[in-house]
Design a protein around this nucleic acid. Structure first.
Lengths: 229, 229
DNA sequence: TTTTTGCTGTTTGCAGACAATCGGGTTGTC
DNA sequence: GACAACCCGATTGTCTGCAAACAGCAAAAA
């Protein structure tokens, strides 16, 4: 007899977690725009849960920096200024180059194989042109990269930073030609890691983010991020 | 007639924040030991607030990594393994050297003056031998360092890491002779920053943390951290 | 026009209630 | 005595009602 689906009850996740994910997704997808007020009661009936769950989820998102709470005025989807965006990319370059270096020097062979697979998936997604597939593939690549770095703190921090980048509501991918370059850069990074060349991997990661930062910041200085209200 | 205290109620901070700080302090001071269960109701009557505030504060501390929640069993003061401690010091070295470099290159002259003052305060505290004064002075130094780095993300992340280090319940300061060396290292760091030598500041910060890490990890491998229950 | 006053919507916090769940002890069986 | 099934107390997860505090705004007063 085959193994019956062990995960029948994926209901394990508490309501709070579900609400968190829903809100995160709503913010990332742009359904909630930066600057928009999030009224408790509205969220409650929108999601169909009690205030307790909503409030605790909001606290979590606040800790992640996705929303900002003003006393007695409630939470608001965080906005991110040009200067903050610059700082964000700056520290992201630092952490990702560290992750790349650690991966190259300490990652297991299996992890390298897995990384190369995500690169191929990314290339395929890029060819397909599907926006969601591209984002998924890129997320998978970064996830693999961070896992291979063998540092839970770096992984946590980078995940948080990635979430916040979406507040800019503009993936640098949307720039013409940027996607192709991105594919190339990522392939190079993976190659350096596969060759166990930590320094080169770090340099490539750093450069990759710096380019993305330049594109994003240039765009941002011309088209200020759209906020709600 | 003298001005009557206008600030009778500086109740600005919401209860939740107060509870957070109380709990953070209780954990940092060792009143709550790693591994100890934190029962909601006990905390409620201990602090004298309702469950709502306690639960939201717990969510915040969980996001910071100070406590860990198990489904239907409640929160527990986080423990930190040897491997995690290694990773923590590793990323801390990375971020602090970055902060040091940025400070040296972009800090204002006023900030440099302020930094030098915290160094002197630290030296004075070290001479006094008072544990709490030393910790305060060192905190002030780091706070100044992070502020001068002009990067809110780095500051946030480092603050979180500093909080978690206290879970080890052993400041590397307690090692004989370590305090004197620490004073020396910090003076050197500040000097490099004052000279605007970013590379040297970064290298010194990195070395400073690496030494602290070595001391702490050596100690940790011999004396496993005491947990409660 | 400027200041004061009061209203309204919203957050903040408390208390009580209930279901779901977990761990541990007890019971029953072999 | 060993082991499994079962039950029970404790605790969390969640919901709801209620009171107080506060920000923003508009109307009233100067």
């Amino acid at each position: 007899m085959g193994t019956i689906d062990l995960q029948i009850r994926r209901q394990n996740a508490s309501l709070r977690i579900l609400v968190e994910d829903k809100l995160r997704q709503a913010i990332s997808s742009g359904r909630f725009k930066p600057g928009q007020r999030l009224v408790e009661r509205e969220l409650c009936e929108l999601i169909g849960v009690g205030r307790t769950s909503v409030r605790e989820a909001l606290r979590q998102l606040e800790a992640e920096g996705l929303i900002t709470s003003y006393p007695h005025r409630g939470p608001v989807v965080s906005t991110i200024s040009y200067e903050e965006a610059r700082q964000l990319y700056s520290v992201r370059a630092l952490l990702e180059s560290f992750a790349g270096q650690e991966f190259a020097e300490n990652g297991s062979n299996e992890e390298i194989v897995a990384l190369l697979e995500t690169v191929e998936a990314f290339e395929a997604a890029a060819k397909s042109g599907s926006g969601t597939r591209i984002i998924e593939a890129k997320t998978a690549f970064y996830d693999c990269l961070m896992t291979g770095s063998k540092n839970v703190f770096v992984k946590q921090m980078l995940t948080s930073l990635h979430n916040r980048v979406t507040l800019l509501r503009m993936t640098s991918m949307t720039q013409p030609g940027r996607l192709q370059n991105s594919v190339f850069e990522i392939r190079e990074i993976a190659a350096a890691i596969a060759l166990r060349d930590g320094d080169r991997a770090a340099a490539l990661c750093k450069r990759h983010i710096e380019i993305a930062a330049k594109v994003a910041l240039d765009y941002l200085s011309k088209n200020p991020v759209e906020t709600s209200e």
